[in-house]
Structures are given as C-alpha cells and as structure tokens.
Write a protein that binds this DNA or RNA. Structure first.
Lengths: 161, 161
DNA sequence: TATTGTTATACTCTATAACTATA
DNA sequence: TATAGTTATAGAGTATAACAATA
C-alpha cells in the first residue's frame, strides 16, 4: 500500500492528484535521497510485515539475538546504534509478546542474557520468509554489480570511509 | 558526537568497550544497510544543526516552501511521503517558531498557502551554510562517479524502477 | 568509579479516525 | 462525493536523567 511506484509511465495519464513540488536544493543533498529511499523501504517492510506486527528494528533485534545467543541489551544497543533506554523499550515489547527471554548472567550479575523463546524462533522463521519477498522487490531493481556497489557505498557511510 | 566511526583500524587496539555482534542475516538485507547509513547521516545532521534546532524534515519543509511559495500542506505531504496529520504537526512547529505563515487561498478557500516569514528566510540561510559542511563530510567519502551512482541508485529505490 | 539494567519523563514521529468547511 | 485542514488519540522511537546492583 505504501511504495506503490508507477511501474510503467503511461503518457496518457494526465496530471495526477498529487502535484509534485520542485525539490530545489533538496535534490542536491545525499541525506535527502537517503531518507526518501529509507522511507520507501521502511514502508514496504511495514506493509509486508503487517500480518506479523514486526518493525524493522524489532526484527533486527530478533536476528541479532538469534545469531548471538546470550547477548545483552547493551550489546544490541551498541550494534544498532541506539542507547540503553531505547533498547530497553524495544526488548520489553518483544518480551511482552513472549519472543525474547531475559536470563541473569552467572559471570556478570549486572547483565541479562537474551535468548529467543520457542515462539520467538517460530516468529523469526515466518518473518524471514516474508522478508525474502520484500527484499526481492528491491533487488530486482539492480544488477548484481549495481547492488554490490550500493551496499559498499552504504557501508562506507555508516562505517566511516 | 554521534556517528564517530573508527577512522583508522588500529590493530593494537584490543577489544573495545563495545563488542560488535555478528549481524548474521541482517548483513544481507539492503534495508538494514540503508537504515544504518540513514541513521549515521541523520545523527550527523542533528549534531550539525543542534544550534539551530532544525531536524532533517523541518529543513526539507522549509526548503520546499522556499522553492514553492504558496504550496499547501497536502502538497508538502505528497512530496515528502507523509500524511496530512503528520505534516500538520510539522508545520505547526515551524509556525510556532515564526518560520512559516499560513495564508488562506483566494482561489480555493479550503487551502492554506504556506510562505516563509522573514525569520524563516534568515533561518534557512543559516541552515544552508551548516548543511554544506555536513554534506561535505560524506561527499568526501566518494569520487564524483561513485556519488553519481549512489544517488541514482537511491532515486531508483524510492521512485520505483 | 564505571557499567548494566531499570524506571521515569518528555518530545518527536507516524498513522488513523473523525469532524468542519469547502469544492 | 471528494478534498484540505484540523483535532484527538495512540503507539513507537528516541534521548536524558536518575537510581540500584554489581564490577
């Protein structure tokens, strides 16, 4: 329902209801195009995952816990670039839905080791299938070389050259 | 304060305080890298504009109004991909700071034509200077050809093929 | 002292729904 | 009917500050 780009540009289709404004200087800003692209994918993700009720960030947390059993909230926060309080709220939502469990660490009793529950693993499996079709929509826009270049560029931005 | 990536990967630097987790399957997702890159630029933007108190979206609205005097909230919402209520809140904040004025349209009295105030134009001029230095940090990461390719790829994502 | 989890607080963003005025 | 603005509401994300327990 969200992205819904005009796949074929029908010339006969006169001025749509949405008059596109002149983006002016915005068009020169990397941040602007990055934000627009992010929003497009974010919405397609949200639409795709609507039936599961999982956001991009919630899925990221579940994938990280799945791949790093026993990770702490601080570990997740550092990896995803948020702070402790934000991650707390995120994990709380997932714990409330019984997807993630907290277990006190024996080695360091300040830490809570995070693990997926059985329900969490089942949800993740369902999510991965939906994600594949979601990703494919965007993969199809590019050749393999183009996609490699795009991913490399994005990594350079957030890993810092 | 935000992005702060390790510019040089010093081998002697032993395990930092932030243990990076295995991103696992996330690393294969375009949406994940796009989100991380967006967050990095978003934070650098926020840090850069802290003294002015302008967000990416607020600046986008001001640039659009500057380039399209008399545009309505609906026009802005359609261009930036949000809905009326979200744009209403955005414009309210800018109007409360006396950067934007609403004037009823003579042609269609349902519409409010938006214009920058004198203070808004002054703020935009200050913002543009700060944005240039912010953008330059990321432009420097790429060659001209690389940047062209990156922008083209991002546009393809949100304009849809 | 520093770190981890936690709680409280607040602001922003986002979206939906419903209402008013106008077309 | 449809559109533009508006208001109310709610959930999610984000960040800061403070505290307790532990290192």
């Amino acid at each position: 329902m969200a992205a819904k780009p005009p796949q074929d540009e029908i010339e006969a289709e006169e001025a749509s209801a949405a008059p596109p404004l002149d983006v002016g200087r915005l068009g020169d800003l990397l941040g602007f195009h990055l934000r627009m692209a992010h929003v497009a994918i974010y919405r397609d993700f949200a639409d795709t995952m609507e039936e599961l009720g999982l956001t991009q960030k919630q899925l990221a947390v579940m994938e990280l816990v799945a791949g790093n059993p026993g990770a702490s909230q601080i570990d997740l926060a550092n990896t995803l670039g948020t702070d402790r309080a934000t991650m707390m709220a995120l994990v709380n939502r997932l714990a409330a839905r019984d997807f993630i469990e907290r277990h006190p660490s024996a080695a360091d009793r300040r830490r809570q080791e995070l693990h997926l529950t059985k329900a969490g693993r089942a949800m993740l499996a369902r999510a991965r299938k939906l994600i594949n079709t979601h990703e494919q929509r965007f993969i199809d826009l590019f050749s393999a070389d183009e996609m490699d270049g795009l991913l490399a560029a994005l990594k350079r931005i957030y890993k810092g050259g």
